[in-house]
Lab assay of single mutants.
Amino acid sequence: DEVEIEDFQYDEDSETYFYPCPCGDNFSITKEDLENGEDVATCPSCSLIIKVIYD
């Protein structure tokens, strides 16, 4: 799936974006990952991944 970065929750302390996963955990991707060109957020509890859409 693809999710807009605006739909993520941002945690300023950890500089990490979170998005709810269907399994009950959260996908996460850090601001640093995005700045380095990464665009895939992973869920630590299951095998799902999502593509992050940002400009």
Rank of each mutant, 00 (worst) to 15 (best):
S14F: 05
I49S: 10
A41M: 09
Y10H: 11
Y10I: 11
E15S: 09
L34H: 14
F8T: 02
D1T: 05
I5C: 04
C23Y: 07
I50S: 10
F18M: 06
F27V: 10
N26E: 05
P22G: 07
D25M: 13
D1C: 15
S45G: 15
A41F: 03
V3A: 05
L34F: 05
S28V: 13
K51A: 04
E35L: 10
Q9T: 07
E4K: 03
T42W: 10
V40F: 05
Y19C: 04
V52I: 10
N26L: 05
E2Q: 15
D7H: 14
E4C: 10
K51W: 10
L34D: 01
K31W: 02
C23F: 01
C46T: 04
V40I: 02
S14C: 14
F27C: 09
V3C: 03
V40D: 09
D1W: 03
T16Q: 14
N26H: 15
E38F: 07
G37V: 11
E15Y: 11
Y54P: 09
E32A: 12
I5N: 01
Y17K: 00
K51H: 13
T42Q: 14
C43A: 00
K51Q: 07
E35A: 04
L48E: 13
I50F: 06
I29E: 03
S28W: 08
D39Y: 04
L48T: 08
N26P: 09
I49Y: 01
Y54C: 11
E32R: 09
V52C: 10
S14E: 14
K51T: 13
E32K: 04
N36G: 13
E6H: 03
V40A: 05
T42A: 15
D7T: 05
Y10R: 12
Q9H: 03
S28C: 07
E2F: 15
N36D: 05
T16S: 14
K51R: 10
I29Y: 08
D11C: 12
V52H: 03
D25S: 10
I50P: 01
Y54R: 13
V52R: 01
F27I: 00
P20N: 15
F18L: 11
T30I: 01
E6Q: 04
N36H: 12
A41Y: 02
I49M: 08
F8P: 00
D13S: 07
T16A: 06
I5A: 02
E4F: 11
I50W: 02
K31D: 02
V40R: 12
F27M: 10
L48H: 08
D55P: 14
Y10V: 15
L48K: 13
D33K: 14
L48R: 11
P22S: 12
I5W: 03
E4Q: 04
N26R: 13
D55A: 11
I29P: 05
I29V: 07
D55Q: 14
D11V: 12
P22Q: 10
V3L: 10
S45C: 07
D11P: 00
T16V: 09
F18Y: 14
Y19T: 08
S14A: 09
Y17T: 01
L34N: 06
N36Q: 15
D13H: 06
Y19E: 06
D39W: 15
G24S: 13
F8W: 02
E2I: 15
L48D: 05
Y54E: 06
L34E: 14
P20I: 08
D55S: 08
I29W: 09
V52Y: 03
Y17M: 03
Y10D: 01
L48I: 04
I49W: 10
D11Q: 15
F27L: 02
Y17E: 00
F27K: 04
D7P: 00
E4W: 04
F27N: 15
K51F: 05
E32V: 04
E35V: 06
V40H: 01
D39I: 01
C43Y: 00
